[in-house]
């Protein structure tokens, strides 16, 4: 097979979300199998850690994914990032409504990771690029960013936790995100640029 043919064949291959959107009867089960670990991990961080709340929100997120599948554009984000975006929106919304703190155990760096399959996280060049970009953050930027997006603490909780002014927390988080974003844009992150 020629290189052109291989490329065309590759382009013709659809991601699991694209196949969900296209009405592939088996695709949603594949989607669940692939991302349930990731979503379960996210849900446990943002809910009480387990139980009905976490289970409910996982199901809700999969319904969101099913509905949003047609909006996934692999040229703009990796599938796992898209899944994470959908999940985070639901989880943040839910968290704000219930005013519940993320579980304390979330501060444990290994919290919940036992359920997370590496391939569901590693897919996509943008993760590697982001890791590289994060290495360029200052200690404060990285710490506040991690507590915010990874641990799930609110900005005021971070301020209390780090005994840092709230305004500084917001500034560090924003600066950190801007740096990562800038690096991702500089790297031209997309599926096409994936190494």
């Amino acid at each position: 097979m020629s290189e052109v043919e291989q490329r065309e064949e590759g382009q013709a291959e659809l991601t699991v979300l694209q196949r969900v959107a296209a009405g592939d009867a088996n695709a949603f089960q594949e989607c669940i199998d692939r991302y349930k670990g990731l979503i379960w991990w996210l849900a446990r961080k943002w809910t009480s850690g387990a139980g009905e709340d976490a289970e409910d929100v996982v199901q809700e997120i999969f319904v969101d994914l099913w509905k949003s599948a047609a909006k996934f554009d692999p040229s703009r984000a990796s599938e796992s990032t898209f899944v994470s975006m959908i999940s985070r929106r639901r989880l943040i919304d839910r968290h704000r409504r219930t005013s519940r703190r993320p579980v304390e155990e979330a501060i444990d760096p290994l919290f919940g990771l036992t359920g997370l399959k590496a391939e569901s996280v590693e897919a996509g060049a943008e993760i590697a690029f982001a890791r590289r970009a994060m290495r360029g953050l200052s200690k404060e930027e990285r710490e506040t960013l991690e507590l915010s997006v990874h641990v799930g603490m609110s900005h005021s909780e971070i301020a209390d936790y780090l005994e840092m002014p709230l305004g500084s927390v917001k500034t560090y988080i924003r600066r950190a995100l801007a740096k990562v974003r800038g690096q991702l844009e500089a790297d031209g992150v997309s599926q096409e640029s994936a190494p």
């Binding site: 290994l110 990771l113 997370l116 590496a118 982001a130 990562v180």
Partner: peptide, 14 residues
Amino acid sequence: TAAVCELAFASERL
């Protein structure tokens, strides 16, 4: 970006 960072942190932990 926030979603990517969250996955990147998880990736580091893994």
